[in-house]
């Protein structure tokens, strides 16, 4: 990644995209996968995102902002990965067993443990929501993106975004209810 790789015209180079947006893409991938995903998973998928961007770069004609284009690729790569049933099971299993490892490193173990427990509980419920709806939900609630932005990222109509968000909320609420009943 040297200076020679700097973009010379309007079209961004993959090096410039990587340097400027690596952290954002990494965070976005981590948010979409949830706290059950390990560091290796997130790095693997982030690498896939930049490889996909590298291959797609010649076809990018500068419509829209480069960040929107890159985040769109990231969202689709994560969605493709979330379709794997085995990966989903692994993420849920990691959420179930994530508690032991955190106690030792937490600065304030009790408070952090409780917060982590709550986060894992909500994510366990969220994992019961279908992947497409979950991605829309996470992009809106965690990443704070608007409906129009999400529509652009996923290349779907805005109305579809709101429909998916509505269904995701309904399914999450039902899953939280079930979880509450089971714990009671």
């Amino acid at each position: 990644m040297d200076r020679a790789a700097e973009p010379t015209d309007d079209a961004p180079s993959i090096h410039a995209l990587f340097r400027r947006h690596f952290d954002d893409v990494y965070r976005m991938v981590a948010h979409l996968l949830g706290p059950g995903a390990g560091q290796a998973d997130v790095e693997d998928i982030t690498q896939q995102v930049f490889m996909a961007a590298h291959r797609a770069l010649p076809r990018y004609r500068g419509e829209g902002r480069p960040t929107t284009w890159l985040y769109g690729i990231a969202t689709r790569v994560v969605l493709n990965n979330l379709r794997s049933w085995r990966r989903r099971r692994r993420l849920v299993a990691a959420l179930e067993s994530a508690l032991e490892g955190d106690v030792a490193v937490a600065a304030c173990p009790e408070r952090d443990l409780a917060a982590r427990q709550e986060l894992n509980r909500v994510w366990r419920c969220l994992m019961r929501v279908g992947a497409k709806k979950r991605v829309v939900y996470v992009l809106h609630v965690v990443e704070g993106r608007s409906g129009e932005e999400i529509a652009e990222l996923l290349e779907i109509p805005v109305a579809t975004v709101w429909t998916r968000l509505h269904h995701a909320r309904r399914e999450l609420n039902a899953a939280l209810d079930r979880d509450e009943r089971r714990n009671a």
Binding site: V122, V141, V142, G144, R169, N173, L176, D177
Partner: peptide, 11 residues
């Protein structure tokens, strides 16, 4: 309930 869950997720 959902509001609380969303607050946890946003943090």
């Amino acid at each position: 309930q959902l509001e609380a869950a969303e607050r946890i997720l946003a943090q």
